[in-house]
Design a protein around this nucleic acid. Structure first.
Length: 348
DNA sequence: GTCCTGAATC
DNA sequence: GATTCAGGAC
């Protein structure tokens, strides 16, 4: 084992995190679930979601047999909803094709929806203590700083280099502890801003520390202007009921419910397509516009509230959706801005 | 390139 | 208050 890895392991014994919710009563299921939630998401954000999720679905079979809407409901607000859809898919695959037993070899795990090389490595090292490297954002930050690796880590060439380093330093023994330690060091010591280099167990190996420039790493992505999109939501409300439609299983807010939307501000055309007659409108209010920023574009949302005096009935299958009861909300997936709007609607 | 959000930072 | 940033799979 390298001195580098030895230092990492010694640090873990003293300072590593060992009491996170998914580290108690650890099983393949809890590790898998937490690793999926932790993709692109920080620990403090995940904890309440994880606890609620595990309460509702204490094991894989419960999850496999669940309605997708319930799964998305529990994921609402966590973002990257394809993670939830893939999680559910994977549960069903394991139930059907693996007899309910989580596969134990890396290739089979890696082939499951939503599990890439790093997550597969994290699961198999954490649950079975097999020797496989991981490479998440934390570890990329540590490695680029320690070995002064220039270039944006998202670039294929740089990522391959980083995997080489990850392989080289992942020890044969105690891989589980080492991988957890590296994630902890990345989250607690080798932070993006104000890294605590003096407390770092591997500062003696760290080139950027010696040079005094750890903040130069990792190199930043060359950023391009975010495109701007506009959308107009039509909020149809009759008493406590609000009309919501389910979005397709791909694209933004996959599988979540949302208001009817249009690309032009003319509320009339939207009302026409829903065959709403003006005599049924009690009140039509343009609500305050706001901005929602995605990783790849900005969305300006202008909602209009249309209060109706009768419950419209449109031809079946022309508009597929649900009348969402504000007083008895159905458990469905809702994106954050939709949840925000629904919470602020006055109900009668 | 496409997928999201809350926390950190300005 | 507005902007930036962290965080992997497909």
């Amino acid at each position: 084992m390298t001195h580098f890895s030895q230092s990492v392991l010694e640090w873990y014994c003293k300072f590593g995190r060992k009491n996170l919710p998914w580290q108690k009563n650890k099983t393949d299921y809890t590790v898998w679930l937490s690793e999926i939630m932790l993709q692109q998401t920080q620990v403090s954000t995940v904890i309440p979601y994880y606890i609620r999720f595990i309460k509702t679905f204490p094991n894989l079979i419960k999850l496999a047999n669940a309605e997708q809407d319930i799964v998305l409901h529990l994921w609402s607000g966590l973002g990257y909803y394809s993670r939830a859809i893939n999680l559910h898919k994977t549960a069903k695959i394991i139930q059907k094709e693996y007899n309910g037993q989580f596969p134990k070899n890396i290739k089979a795990i890696n082939a499951l929806p939503g599990i890439g090389r790093s997550t597969a490595g994290a699961i198999i090292s954490s649950v079975y203590n097999k020797t496989y490297p991981i490479l998440d954002g934390n570890i990329k930050r540590i490695l680029t700083r320690c070995f002064a690796i220039k270039g944006w880590p998202g670039e294929k060439k740089i990522e391959n280099t980083l995997w080489k380093y990850a392989e080289k330093y992942t020890p044969q023994k105690n891989t589980d502890k080492y991988n957890q330690a590296m994630m902890d060091i990345g989250a607690m010591i080798c932070t993006r801003a104000k890294p605590k280099c003096l407390l770092c167990p591997i500062n003696q190996y760290c080139i950027s520390y010696k040079k005094g420039n750890p903040l130069n790493y990792p190199s930043k992505k060359i950023k391009r202007e975010k495109s701007v999109k506009k959308v107009y939501f039509t909020i149809l409300q009759y008493k406590n009921l609000v009309w919501l439609e389910q979005r397709p299983t791909s694209g933004v807010w996959a599988g979540l419910f949302s208001f009817p939307e249009a690309n032009n501000p003319k509320i009339e055309s939207q009302l026409d397509s829903y065959k709403i007659s003006y005599k049924d409108i009690l009140q039509l209010t343009k609500l305050i516009s706001f901005k929602h920023t995605f990783s790849h574009y900005q969305l300006y949302i202008t909602p209009s509230l249309v209060k109706l005096s009768t419950l419209p009935i449109w031809k079946i299958e022309v508009h597929k959706g649900i009348w969402y009861d504000l007083l008895k909300p159905k458990k469905i997936g809702l994106a954050t801005p939709i949840k925000y709007l629904l919470e602020r609607l006055p109900c009668e």
